[in-house]
Design a protein around this nucleic acid. Structure first.
Length: 427
RNA sequence: GAGCCUGUAGCUCAACGGCAGAGCGCUACACUGUGGAUGUAGAUGUUGAGGGUUCGAAACCCUUCAGGCUCCCCA
């Protein structure tokens, strides 16, 4: 046991069943992206550490990402996020790109953190960004892309919701409470942590951090006011656009969404599963300005979001929304009657494949019973057998494995017969 | 970086100081030209590893490794 080399901590092995889930997420994410006209792109998986150090702070990068020195002595890191690479690639072609740029990506990322429910050290992330436009309507489109995905994987508005807030709105509210600028980041963290603490503990924590009793009371009023968005022109327009896009049933204003992040400047949003078995967000994003400042581009505004595969994977499994796993991608099994007919079976399989079917052929002459059991395990839908009788008469026995009916037909129409069966019971 | 919990058959778990077991899965047979169901039989273990206590350890103690959950953090 201990002799076996284990997978690296925080990584996952993708057996075919898990791979099917990952591909399901990839397909649905891609389809949601393409339906809004987004182009697929990608960046290097390895980047120089400076790319991240500039924005995120070197300490964070060194502590929470996989970094190493390559053979040439360069200090590199496995990408922990995509946005800096996006910024560089956009800046490099800023003069020739047609804006607004709409890009999406799905690929691997690495963060050196403690693995726990919903978090691994190696994960896949879907990123969607629109650059070059600064409007609430653009923000609404990004949210709509996210909702389109949630809807397409079968999550209902009762099961998943996107919570939206606006940084500028919160800033104006904090102004009204006379919360000084240098306290804003700390207050953001307070808001983020509120749901994890008891009300009494949170009150104490806020007062401890130097806010006055009246500021605390004011803060609680703000965080409990779900009509606050009506005072904000950007959010009013955002919700009108969401309505027009047909996704408003999934979206609601929530003053508790802050996303403690440095670079968000306007709209911010996070999607949650409502039952809350996973306390992490399914996806999150928002509007950012000055994206290109650190990489030498002209000022450019953007809006985007990211979704990790881990949390959504757990949610889909817990809610029973993962499609049934069919082990064999080939719905047809050609059996091998005996050793003398093995090559005949191979010929028949080849014929069926040439007609466009996906075909599995048993590779040795074992008992038919075993081959049919194998077909069953692989969830094959049709079995085709050529025994001595069929071989002598130029025929093939085609069996529908779903209802058990078998017909013996001319060899030439075997493919046609199989296709008819599949047309009825599904591929 | 800190805390709590768990490592026993391929999987899920029982045995909680006294012969290491069950269910599922697997293999074979019933069924020598046909799957799912059922029945019968069978195989499978250095109880994560190392040390200690004991007449006796899967169990108790120590060390170590691995995993899970939480705090922290979350670009």
């Amino acid at each position: 046991m201990t002799q076996k080399i284990q997978p690296v901590k925080g990584t996952r092995e993708f057996y075919p069943e898990q791979m099917a889930l990952r591909n399901f997420i990839y397909e649905k994410a891609g389809e949601a992206s393409r339906s809004f006209g987004y182009q697929e792109w990608d960046a290097p998986f390895i980047e120089s550490i400076e790319l991240y150090a500039a924005k995120s702070g070197e300490e964070l990068v060194k502590k929470q990402s996989f970094t190493f020195t390559d053979r040439g002595g360069d200090f590199v890191t496995l990408r922990p996020e995509l946005t800096p690479s996006l910024a560089r690639m956009i800046a490099a072609r800023q003069g020739e790109l047609t804006f607004p740029v709409r890009w999406w990506s799905f690929g691997p990322f690495w963060r050196y953190e403690q693995p726990q429910k919903g978090r691994t050290r190696e994960f896949f992330q879907w990123n969607v960004d629109m650059l070059g436009v600064n409007s609430p309507e653009a923000d609404a489109e990004l949210i709509a892309v996210g909702v389109t995905f949630l809807r397409s994987v079968g999550l209902s508005p009762a099961q998943a919701a996107v919570h939206v807030n606006n940084r500028r709105l919160m800033d104006s509210q904090f102004d009204a409470l006379d919360i000084p600028q240098e306290k804003r980041l700390e207050v953001s963290n307070m808001v983020d942590r509120r749901s994890k603490m008891t009300p009494a503990n949170w009150d104490a924590y806020v007062l401890d951090s130097g806010l006055s009793q009246s500021q605390l009371e004011g803060l609680k009023v703000i965080l409990g006011d779900f009509d606050l968005w009506k005072k904000n022109d950007e959010l009013t327009r955002l919700f009108a656009a969401l309505e027009a896009l047909g996704v408003s049933e999934y979206v609601k204003f929530d003053p508790n969404i802050m996303r403690g992040l440095l670079y968000y400047t306007g709209t911010v949003f996070e999607a949650f599963e409502t039952s809350g078995s996973v306390r992490r967000a399914i996806l999150g994003g928002g509007r950012y300005d000055n994206l290109l400042a650190d990489v030498g581009g002209q000022p450019l505004s953007g809006v985007g979001f990211a979704m990790g595969d881990v949390v959504i994977g757990i949610v889909l499994q817990e809610l029973g929304l993962v499609p049934e796993f069919v082990p064999s991608p080939a719905p047809v099994l050609v059996t091998v009657f005996d050793a003398s007919l093995l090559l005949e079976a191979y010929r028949l399989a080849a014929e069926l494949r040439r007609s466009g079917l996906r075909v599995l052929c048993y590779p040795e002459p074992v008992k038919l019973q075993k081959q049919f059991k194998f077909a069953d395990k692989m969830k094959a839908r049709v079995a085709v057998t050529v025994g001595p009788d069929e071989a002598a008469n130029g025929q093939a026995a085609v069996k529908n494995l779903v209802n058990g009916e078998q017909v013996v037909v001319k060899r030439e129409v075997a493919a046609e017969t199989v296709k008819k069966i599949l047309a009825v019971i599904g591929p």
